[in-house]
């Protein structure tokens, strides 16, 4: 807790927390990037599950290039939000659940991009369908835990303990 208290007393953390545009900018960027990243993953999963038979998987998987730009923005804005209120997230188990779901979701995205956009395999096997269901569940979990972070934290600022 002491480390978190020190972290939130750094100039950068105070600026991110107290400057309206900085915090709002990070929050908005995070939401926009999440919208694109989750959206692209849902589109690919819907195709793999079989809801959009007309769509070619090798074609839609090309959007993964955009997806990684979105992921970069998620991490930049996510780190900014984390620096603004480090204790709020780091003392909340929901945050770690979100991080795990996000990491596994991104590994599956990388696998899909490699298989369908880079190697251009056109056949959808049972494993890919299973992974698509898992991918959908993981992104729903990421969105849900992201929202619940605002409601489940027990500590907002670590410095109030010192």
């Amino acid at each position: 807790m002491e480390t978190l208290a020190r972290l939130e007393e750094t100039t950068l953390s105070i600026w991110l927390r107290e400057s309206g545009p900085a915090f709002f900018g990070a929050l908005t960027l995070h939401s926009l990037a999440m919208g694109f990243v989750v959206g692209i993953n849902i589109a690919v999963a819907l195709k793999l599950i079989g809801f959009v038979p007309r769509l070619e998987i090798t074609a839609v998987a090309r959007f993964f290039t955009f997806h990684w730009y979105g992921v970069a923005f998620i991490f930049i804005s996510g780190i900014a939000l984390l620096l603004a209120y480090p204790a709020k997230a780091l003392t909340n188990p929901v945050f770690y659940f979100k991080l795990c779901a996000l990491s596994i979701g991104l590994l599956i995205s990388r696998h899909f991009q490699n298989k369908f956009a880079i190697q251009r395999k056109n056949t959808i096997d049972r494993r890919s369908i299973g992974l698509a269901y898992l991918c959908l569940a993981l992104w729903i979990a990421v969105v849900t835990t992201g929202r619940f972070l605002a409601y489940t934290h027990t500590t907002l600022l670590a410095s109030r303990f010192y």
Partner: peptide, 8 residues
Amino acid sequence: CLLIGTVG
């Protein structure tokens, strides 16, 4: 997200 992933 569904809207952005399709219409977007």
